[in-house]
Every structure is written in structure tokens, then in C-alpha cells.
Design a protein around this nucleic acid. Structure first.
Lengths: 219, 219
DNA sequence: TGTTTTATTGACAATTCCTTGAAAATTTAG
DNA sequence: CTAAATTTTCAAGGAATTGTCAATAAAACA
């Protein structure tokens, strides 16, 4: 059962939404102040949060940031239309979704469901400075993105998924789903290009080690 | 019967619109000055208002705010195209809908009906200069509307809803609910057209990036 | 119906990537 | 230490992909 943290200062609205969410089999914890929200977030596990930006004690944007620090769950922002104005938008803030008030509770349910479904985030492999986002096919090195070609990405991913294991060139071709006719030298070339792009020196490699006469190994 | 408050200083236009609305079974109260408008709003109930921004005695934006204070009904703003310019858009102000003049009275009728039926307001995606109004299927770039075809809109929306994610052409077809038989090259063509219309250069794209051998990604 | 708009497709150029041979560098074996 | 084997890298050629024009088919519209 999905747990929803609802932050809404209008108590009437709060009750209505909570009722709705529960009718759709969601466990909803509702609160009306930033303090309560942060408290709850520290103590309990939530799958998603719905945050009304117009709160009294604390600026909604600050609360958003505080929440993200405590638990990195998707946050749907709601706000009276027009209040956002020239300021930063919910999306720019990184919100999962954005709803203008007044909204239909049914729509909120749909958006929560969509966000949770979407939120099946792709696997991240983090090794040293490297971060590999599998489904999105993106590579970062210390927060800077590195652009790899299709084959390079597939080779690197195969190595990382089998890190610690020594792979022959033939195995790499198979694991990376390259054209089965790919020659051994071509694999070398891909490795060379990858090393160059991620800044790995073949002589004293941090990531991809060459095993003389055998193949390569990621470590 | 729906009551419409029309604020329009061009008396000829005013008469035309009023006549149209009444033909479509709407009760229309027309006025040509801010004073009359506020007066009417205080005294009578309206379901929706249509406000022409170019009024003499008072700045249209101020009038908009005054009206919202008196009665929080949806307000459709009309304005000579281009007059909005760099300023705040009708949307940012919180307008229910926005019409560039000159407009077809029939379109106004449709939009009023849509606004009333909707009751709740549609989501806006704002990314950089782009604003996408999902329910109204309209796209704005720096407050100017861009016209996309159905397929183009659906493709762009799919990309935006999955921004940051790398999508194959097949995924785009599915996410945009295009004809499942749509060929890969057709997707390219849609992307090309979208890019041209939103002014995105494929060589150094601000919005839609091509991933060689993989697909596209919105960022 | 005829007219206009939109989607699709082929063609071609431009671009990017993969492959390959060979030279240079490195490692291993004798 | 020298020679052979292997890896690394360069650079060029060729293959595949993408961008876009223009023509056509399909669809929407009046």
C-alpha cells in the first residue's frame, strides 16, 4: 500500500483529499505545518508527498528543499494558480508533477499513480567518480556528463555489470550485444575510446584493467 | 443558464460577441469600462468573465486583480496579439484561458464552454522559454503561441512528460499514442518539424537532443 | 463535394560511428 | 637483452543513422 504525505493548510481541503486518497487505497498522513511534515518524514517512510506551496510559517520552496534532504521521494506541488508567477516554477525546482488549485481530487489520484509508476527509477551504478544510469543510458563523472556512443556505452555497461570478473573480448561482444561478427581489435578500439572519455590511463587504470592475453576487467 | 461578464471597449465588437453568446444560450452582460465591470461583479453572479486587456481608464492587469478579489470566477483574457509581449502572460496571471485578437466568436463560445465544463484547470509545463498547456493543447514560446499539429503536439508532450529520459522512436510512438504502425523515419520528421517550430537547432539543441542509434531525449 | 491541412515516404546530403590496417608502445618468453 | 606476441592508438574508409526537402497519400474540414 502506498504511503502519501499530504501537506495542506486548508483543513477542509485536507480532509477531502485524505478521504479521497484512502478511498483509492492509499495510506495518507496529512499535516498542515512544515514542522509536522519534516517530523513525519524523519520518522516514517513515504512513497510520495503532495505539497501545497502556500503555507504560513515557512516558504514553500524552502520546505521543499528541506524535505528533499531528508528523503528523496517524488513531490507533487500544488499551488493557487498565479501565485507562482514570475518566480521559479515547480518544475524548475525539480518537482515530480505540478497541480494548479483548485484541482479535482480524482486528478490528484491519477497523478500520484502516474508518478509512482514512473518513479520506478532506472538503476544507477555508482563506482568511484562514475555514475551510470542504465535505462537512460547516461554516464556521469563527478556530476559532469560524459557522452558515449551506443557501442561504447554497451561495452562499459557490460564491464560494470560484471565488474571484478575478467572478460574475454568474445564475452564482451556477447554481453554488450554487439554485432556477433565484431572483431577483437574493434573491442580494443571501443575500450580505448571509453578510457579516453572517462579519463582512464591504460598504464595504471583506475577502472578498466587489461589482462595480457586474456581480456579486460572492470574494478 | 450560464452568465457571462463581457468587458470590451470596442462597442461594435461588444455587440457582435454579445449577440453570439446569446445565440448559444448564454446570458451576457456587456460593459466597456472597468468601473462598470467591477460594479456588475459586485452586484450580480457570473459564471465566467471575458476581459479585453486593452482598456482605457485602468490597466487591464489591475482590473483583473480587482475582479479576482471580488469574485474568483474563471476569466478568459483577450488581447491584441503581441501586446502581451515580454510582460507577464495571461496564464501567469492565472487566467483560465487566453485568446489573441481578432478571434472568431465561435471559438470564444467553445472556450467558454470548455472552461465551464472543465471547472478545474489544466496543467502547465514550463521549461525554459516553453510553456505547454496540456488540456488546451497549446504551446507558447516566450508568451507567443506556436501552432503544432496533433502528432507534433503529442510527440512533444510525450517527450516533456519523460524529460531527462532517453526514448527510442518506438517508445515515442507508444507514449504519444500515435498509430502503432508509425515508422521510425516518420518520428524523425515530426521531431524535425517540432524543432523548426520551437526554434531548436539539431546541432546544438536546447530542448530535443538526438542520441545516435538510440532515439531522442528532452532536457 | 472540393479544398486545405497533416502524415508519410523516398531521396539525398550531412553527419556520426564502426571497422580496419598499420605503426608505435608494451609485455612476456627465451 | 632480444624477439615475438599482444595491446594501444592513429587515421582513413566505409557503413549506418539522422536531417530535411519535396512529392504523395491520407485525413480533416468546410
Amino acid at each position: 500500500m502506498n504511503r502519501v504525505l499530504l501537506i495542506e493548510d486548508d483543513l477542509q481541503m485536507q480532509g477531502l483529499i485524505k478521504e479521497y486518497l484512502e478511498r483509492f487505497h492509499m495510506d495518507c498522513f496529512a499535516c498542515s505545518t512544515p514542522g509536522e511534515a519534516l517530523e513525519a518524514l524523519k520518522k516514517e517512510r513515504f512513497d510520495i508527498a503532495v505539497l501545497d506551496l502556500m503555507l504560513p510559517q515557512m516558504d514553500g520552496f524552502d520546505l521543499y528543499k528541506e524535505m528533499k534532504k531528508i528523503a528523496d521521494i517524488p513531490i507533487i506541488i500544488s499551488s493557487a494558480r498565479g501565485d507562482i508567477g514570475n518566480k521559479i516554477t515547480g518544475f524548475e525546482l525539480g518537482a515530480e508533477d505540478f497541480l494548479a488549485k483548485p484541482y479535482d481530487p480524482r486528478e490528484l489520484v491519477l497523478r500520484i499513480e502516474a508518478a509512482l509508476k514512473r518513479g520506478q527509477r532506472s538503476t544507477l551504478y555508482k563506482i568511484g567518480d562514475l555514475t551510470i544510469d542504465e535505462a537512460n543510458r547516461r554516464i556521469f563523472i563527478e556530476d559532469y556528463e560524459i557522452e558515449l556512443t551506443k557501442a561504447e556505452f554497451d561495452v562499459l555497461l557490460a564491464l560494470i555489470k560484471n565488474r571484478g570478473k575478467t572478460l574475454s573480448r568474445e564475452q564482451i561482444v556477447a554481453l554488450a550485444s554487439l554485432d556477433p561478427q565484431t572483431r577483437r581489435r574493434t573491442v580494443d578500439m571501443h575500450i580505448s575510446n571509453i578510457r579516453q572519455k572517462i579519463g582512464d590511463d591504460p598504464k595504471k587504470p583506475k577502472y578498466i584493467k587489461s589482462l595480457w592475453g586474456i581480456g579486460y576487467r572492470f574494478e
